[in-house]
């Protein structure tokens, strides 16, 4: 095996591990927002690491895997952001241990600002 193949395999295994952790977090966390935290962060790094690992293993594919991972890096936070806002606006509450919810406190003002 070449040295870059070993790096690629290590990256693939790390990526798969983080993908698994992300899915486990989605199952274990108590409410939507915390699930989103685990789901977004761990799966983004996991997918990036796995895809770039394949790119490092086959140097000819490097640019294409780079494009795919760049796309995932740009779009994944955006979609979780949109989902979080949709969840809050459709009335899903935070769990009871939550300390503070500034967004719910300011919601009236935001609505007025949007209308004006």
């Amino acid at each position: 095996m070449q040295w870059y193949e070993i790096i690629g395999v290590v990256m693939i295994v790390t990526g798969a591990f983080f993908l698994f952790l992300g899915a486990l977090g989605v199952i274990r966390m108590p409410d939507v927002y915390n699930r989103m935290q685990a789901g977004t962060k761990a799966t983004t790094l996991g997918a990036l690491s796995l895809i770039m690992g394949v790119g490092v293993y086959h140097p000819a594919w490097f640019f294409k895997t780079g494009i795919i991972s760049l796309f995932i890096l740009l779009t994944n936070p955006v979609s979780s952001n949109a989902l979080a806002r949709a969840a809050h606006n459709s009335g899903v509450p935070l769990i009871e241990e939550s300390v503070v919810d500034k967004y719910a406190e300011d919601k009236e003002e935001i609505k007025k600002e949007m209308e004006s």
């Binding site: 939507v32 699930r35 799966t43 983004t44 979780s80 989902l83 949709a86 969840a87 899903v92």
Partner: peptide, 18 residues
Amino acid sequence: TIPDRAVGLDTATTITTA
């Protein structure tokens, strides 16, 4: 809730891409 299911879907699609 429905947002919960959407979070599951979001995670599943990222994993499927990988």
